[in-house]
């Protein structure tokens, strides 16, 4: 066991996979000599050279499209979008090409690509360095979407993503990169894609979350237990697509109440999919309407801390939503 933060766990996963498999390569803006703007690839350029850790021009479509070409050639590219906010020039490549190639070629081609994207607010990044845009990708058939919330999951899920035969969008919340350290199993620690994690068992309500919201939800659960005697079950979805509906429904069956929490805006957000899944397949378990707590309906996270604090979810907001749900 090593005590690592999420950023270190991500770096370690890439390092181990590059060591294990010479076809794994990294590409992106500033991932080489600098080691990434957040430091995720620090040290890897010196270790693996400037072809396998490749600095690209500021060309996101190129990053995704070249990753696709290299994957067809037999490599396993791990591409970094510097911020999830800047992925849109690559949207055509990801949505029109990468997600569809296996299907449109009737399985003649497959694309083992990981696209890593730092996402999320709370870092004074304003409208263009704070976005939680996972829904564009969770609604795209052919992609897998992963969003870890612990160092161990970050390492294990990234390793699983790199080994996966299909494209994975890997969302890394910037605010938790260095927020805390926790035990990460040594060696070949692989967390399978598509399995949620019951982060804290409970009986009065279920809180479904992912990424940074796992940390907020766990804090909220502590407060609820301490102040209200409410035992909230915290379910970290970890993988958004494919969604672990089994774990999700089993939790609702235990608690009868579901609160879905995400930083992305509410309308048409991922919570709607979770809510619909529960409504369709877990209706008999419910003692209260499925409730969503999500980012506000504004186009982005505003800059000034007064405004950003208003935007961001936090444990107190989750506690409040959980109390209302429990009181229904």
């Amino acid at each position: 066991m090593a005590e690592l933060n999420i950023l270190e766990a991500i770096r370690l996963a890439m390092d181990e996979e590059m060591e294990r498999d010479p076809d794994v390569m990294l590409l992106g803006e500033d991932v080489g000599r600098k080691g990434g703007v957040f430091g995720a690839t620090e040290g890897l350029w010196a270790k693996y050279g400037d072809k396998r850790v490749l600095d690209t021009p500021l060309s996101e479509a190129l990053i995704a499209g070249a990753a696709m070409g290299a994957a067809m050639y037999g490599l396993r590219p791990v591409a970094e979008m510097q911020f999830a906010d800047f992925v849109y020039p690559a949207f055509n490549q990801i949505v029109s090409e990468i997600s569809r190639l296996r299907y449109r070629s009737n399985n003649s081609f497959g694309l083992p690509i990981v696209i890593r994207m730092p996402y999320g607010g709370g870092v004074h990044g304003a409208l263009y360095h704070s976005q939680s845009n996972e829904t564009y990708f969770t609604s795209t058939v052919g992609l897998k979407v992963v969003a870890p919330g612990t160092p161990a999951d970050a390492k294990g899920l990234l390793k699983a993503s790199i080994r996966d035969p299909d494209p994975v969008m890997f969302f890394e919340h910037k605010k938790v990169y260095r927020l805390f350290r926790a035990d990460v199993p040594d060696g070949d620690h692989v967390v399978p894609i598509g399995r949620a994690d019951v982060a804290r068992p409970g009986k009065h309500l279920s809180i479904f979350c992912y990424g940074y919201m796992r940390i907020c939800a766990l804090e909220a659960a502590e407060m609820l237990a301490r102040e209200d005697g409410l035992e909230a079950e915290v379910v970290d979805l970890r993988t958004l697509r494919p969604l672990d509906t089994e774990t999700l429904l089993a939790s609702v069956a235990r608690t009868g109440r579901a609160l879905v929490v995400h930083e992305a805006n509410r309308f048409g957000g991922f919570g709607a999919e979770v809510a619909a899944t529960i409504a369709e397949a877990g209706f008999e378990s419910l003692d209260a309407p499925v409730t969503r707590l999500a980012g506000p309906e504004v186009p982005g996270v505003p800059y000034h801390h007064n405004l950003e604090d208003w935007f961001m979810l936090n444990p107190a907001k989750i506690v409040e939503a959980a109390r209302s749900l429990a009181a229904y």
Binding site: M25, M72, Y73, G74, N92, L101
Partner: peptide, 30 residues
């Protein structure tokens, strides 16, 4: 498109394939 002939599958948005050729060349270069 024909994987067995090293021919990339064609899609409809025009120009996307140019990046795939560049990526294939990048793969060989790496």
């Amino acid at each position: 498109g024909a994987a067995r002939n090293n021919i990339v599958s064609v899609s409809s948005p025009v120009g996307t394939q140019v990046l795939h050729a560049v990526g294939l060349a990048m793969g060989a270069w790496v």
